[in-house]
Amino acid sequence: MLSSTGLAAARRVRVIGMRSVFSSIARISTRSAACPKVRASVRIAAVFNRGFAAAASRSATKTATATATRKTTTTTKKPAAKTTTAARQKKKASSTKKPTAKKAAPKKKTVPKKTGRLKKTVKEVPENVKLFRKVKELKAKALLNEQPRGLPARSWLVFVQKNGGVPKGQTATEFMSAMKKQFAALSSVEKQALQDEARANKVRNDAALINWITTYPVETIEAANLARSHLKRLGKTAKLSLPDPRRPKGLLSPYIIFTTQRMKSGDLDNIPPTARVAAIGSEWRALSETERQPFYEAAEKDKERYKVERASLSPSP
């Protein structure tokens, strides 16, 4: 049995041999005129043999070259495999090497994250709103609502209170106009009785007010008086300051002491009050420093009196 290569070579020999036979026949036919005649069978057999020999030699050379090329490819492939194994070993060696320590990157500065909340825009408060809040605060300090309501301290108010309120079916203006007419028609005796009752009510009101004031500390009453004076300047109240008997009298200046002495002397009684004050001021400016010295000493004594009275106040309840 031939191998696949042998079968392929035999096929080539057959084909090549047949081609050589036909070509030789053609050459013989061209030369037949000059050469002696030879039998056709002999000529065909000779040509066939030559072609077969040439084809056999050609196939042998081809097989020899094929085997040689195979051997060279196998020999050349072996070192390639060696190189691949060497490369693998190099890769393993490189993988087993210790990794070099990388330089630490510089730390970035931590920037605080911005929150999504927007800053609230502060709206400007209108002046009327500021005034309203200020008045409300001052009224709370002034103790206006806490102050007790007193009895009517005027004869007219006593007369209106006795006649009751506004009757049904009549307006306040109509009622007040009728009361004025009736009050004007009263006799002197009736009006005197109303006045006496009003004075008695005032005494009761003062006593009740003092009792109510003493329930608060002295500092609270002083703050209430300051708030009331502020409200008066703003035109928001007409109530008087609270008379606190526990509070010491204010400090006296040298000029006040001089003025009180001049008022008590009686030398300026025949002069009107406005002219009297102007005359006292001109006299004070005309005094020398030695003449003013006694008044300065009196003012220092009054300051000591104020300190003692202030320290002797009872503690806040």
Rank of each mutant, 00 (worst) to 15 (best):
N225H: 05
I280L: 05
L313D: 03
I25E: 01
A172Y: 15
G51W: 00
K37G: 08
T220H: 04
K102N: 13
D196Q: 11
Q192K: 13
V13F: 05
R133D: 05
R199V: 12
T72H: 10
R39P: 09
V38I: 11
N205A: 05
R149L: 13
K109Q: 03
T214H: 06
A45M: 10
K98G: 11
L118K: 09
L242F: 05
P152T: 04
A298T: 05
Q147L: 10
R27I: 05
I221A: 02
A178C: 04
K120S: 10
I16T: 14
A34L: 15
N145D: 13
I280F: 02
I210D: 02
S265N: 10
V308D: 13
A198W: 01
M18P: 07
V125H: 07
K108A: 13
S4I: 12
T259V: 11
P112Q: 06
K181P: 00
A238E: 14
P126K: 10
S20P: 01
K191M: 03
M179V: 06
G235F: 03
G250E: 06
Q182W: 05
T237K: 00
N163A: 09
E190T: 13
A224Y: 00
T84V: 12
K191E: 02
S41E: 09
Q182A: 14
C35H: 09
A208M: 06
D196S: 11
D267N: 09
A153E: 06
L7I: 11
K168Q: 10
T5S: 15
L138P: 00
N145L: 14
M179E: 02
E309R: 07
V203Q: 08
F22K: 05
K181C: 07
K108M: 09
T61Q: 15
K139H: 15
S312P: 04
A93I: 07
T110S: 14
A207R: 11
V42P: 03
A33F: 14
I28W: 05
Q261V: 15
K180F: 03
K77Q: 14
L144K: 00
K107D: 12
A238R: 14
R154V: 04
K92Q: 12
I280K: 00
V13P: 00
S4K: 10
P272C: 04
A66I: 10
T259A: 06
T259L: 06
F258R: 00
K103W: 07
L209W: 04
M176K: 11
T72S: 07
A10N: 08
K113E: 12
L144I: 11
S20Q: 07
S32N: 12
F48A: 02
R310Q: 07
T173M: 06
L2I: 05
A26C: 13
A10W: 07
R246F: 03
S94E: 12
K97R: 13
G6E: 13
E300P: 01
A140K: 09
E283V: 10
W212P: 01
K82G: 06
S312L: 10
K78Y: 12
R133Y: 15
S94M: 15
A66N: 12
E283L: 11
T96N: 14
N145M: 08
